[in-house]
Each structure stands twice: as structure tokens, then as C-alpha cells.
Amino acid sequence: MSAPEKPQSSLAKLVPLIGKRVLSSLLTLFLVSLVIFTVSGLLPGDAAQELLGQSATPEQVASLRHEMGLDRPAHVRYVDWLGGIVRGNAGMSYVANMPVGQIISNRLPNSLTLAGITAVISTVIALTIGISSAINRGGKLDSMLNITTLSLVAMPEFLIATLGVLVFSVKLLWLPSIALVTPDASWGQMLRSMALPVFSLTCVVVAQMARMTRAAVADQLDRPYVEMAKLKGVPFSRIVLFHVMPNAVGPVVNAMALSLSYLMGGAIIVETIFNFPGLASLMVNAVTSRDMPLLQSCAMIFCATYLALMLVADIVAILANPRLRA
């Protein structure tokens, strides 16, 4: 952005604005924790009973309940749990009998790598598709891309993943159908094993992001200032670059953040299909085994990521908008 620098006055305006936005995110995150704890920790049946099975005597259950702290009042458990999470101590996994933090820290880097690679590839492709669609509005290219992305958004992830496996692993034998990510794997092996998960995720994310980008750019192209620029004789490429893009930054970044947040949901299916040792497949396991502490932590990480993405998008939008900035 080619904004001239306006140090003090704009800073004085920006800091409270952004500060307010950050606080609001933190408040939402707090409320989210309340929801997750309530739904997963209070409503369902008893975890101690669950762990011990039907044959356990009431005494055994009671003593395990006490051991797990389940006999304490709900609000005490909540404060304890939240305090633990904030300090990085999210409790013990019921099933693995390991600290939740440790299990997650084994998985998190894998998920971040997968998400990172997918995000970079998707953003590049989606921006290209979205912007070229928007500037060719109503043209052949636009309607072709429209139908493609429209279909792709509605495609179940497992269909794309299975088709990918069918074509690239079963028929062509190019890529492994199972993503074995081991710490001692070389970069080449690593990339090969990630190719199919990345491909599947990219398809879904690109479609979503491209559609929203197109909408944001097309909306700007309809504004009177674009007509004015045409009437000044400004070439179209320059209109898009210097007039439309500075105004589209906010909405486009918002579209990117929303689509990337979708990555997390999509990752659940894709990680499971490819046996990818990431956070999402860990969460699915936690659901299957009803491992509540692990489940709660995973859910909190996903929600915090979502909120962080939205926060970044909003801050970018604030910085890009001279009305708010200057």
C-alpha cells in the first residue's frame, strides 16, 4: 500500500482501535472455552463410569471420580481447567495416560506444515483465479471458473481424496496413499507423502477462496470511482492494480482468512483418510475414545486459530482503510 506516513496522529487512532479488536477476540475465546467445557465436560455421562466400564462397582467409580476431580463443583473444575490451559498444562489424557500437552506437541508441527504448505499454494492459485474471474466478469473464462469452483466447493473432501488416491496411487503409482511422516524422513519423502493431503485440501480451499476473492474484487469494480478512472483514460491494468486492489485488500484478506479457517475442518477428513499424524486426526481419535481432556484442548486450539485468523484479517482491513487509519 502506498499510503504516506502519518506517524503520531494515525497511531493514536489505530492503537485503541486494534486494542479493542484484540480484547474482543480474547473475550470471544473465553466464551468459546466456556461453551466447549460445558458441552464436553458437563452434559455427557460420567467419564469415570465410561473408563471403568459397566462392570465397575459404585465404590470404584466414586474413587476414580475423586481421583479425576470429577466430584468437585463444575465452576471449580472449569477454572482449574482454564487455568491449566493458560499455563500450558492441559491435564492428562484419559486414554494415552500422557500429558495432553505432550501428545499435542508431537502432532502440532505436522499439522502446521500441512496447513502452511496448503495455505501458500491455495492463496496463490485462488488469488489468480479470483482476480482473473472478476476482471473477465461475464466472459467465457469467468463462467467456466464459476462452474468449476461452484462444483468444487460442494464436493465432499473424502471424494476428492479418494479420487486422488485412485488416480495417483492406485492407477499411476506416483504417490503413497498413506502419509507416513516420521521424524527421520528426508525432505523428499516428506513432500511425497504430503502431496495427496495437500492436493485434497487445496482443491476445497482454493474453490472457496477464489469465489470470495472474485466477489470482493467484482464489488469494487462496480464502484463509481472505477468508472471515473476509466473516464480519465487510465488503462484497465492500472485501474485494477492501483484503484481496485487497495480497496479490495480488506475483503480479500477476510476471504483468505475465512477459507483458511475452513482448512481446519477439511483437515479432519483428509488427515484421517491419509492417516496423517496431525491434530485433526488426533481429535477424531479423541472423539472415538471419548478422551475429553484431549478433545477439549484440540477444540480450543482450532478455535483459537480461527479467532487469530479473523483477528489478523480485521487488523489488515483496519490498516488498509484510510478512513480508519488516517
Binding site: 500500500m1 463509481p224 468508472e227 471515473m228 473516464l231 483514460g233 487510465v234 484503484h243 480497496n247
Partner: peptide, 20 residues
């Protein structure tokens, strides 16, 4: 356009690009 023939629009508020 904009060189030998130029245009002044009804609403300057809309015709100016808000971001520049």
C-alpha cells in the same frame, strides 16, 4: 479520455477512490 475530454461527476464522494 481524461486528456482532451474530461468528466466531472455528480458525486465527488463516490467518484474519488477512498483509499488513495
Amino acid at each position: 479520455r481524461g486528456r482532451r475530454i474530461s468528466y466531472i461527476a455528480q458525486s465527488a464522494a463516490a467518484a474519488f477512490n477512498p483509499s488513495r
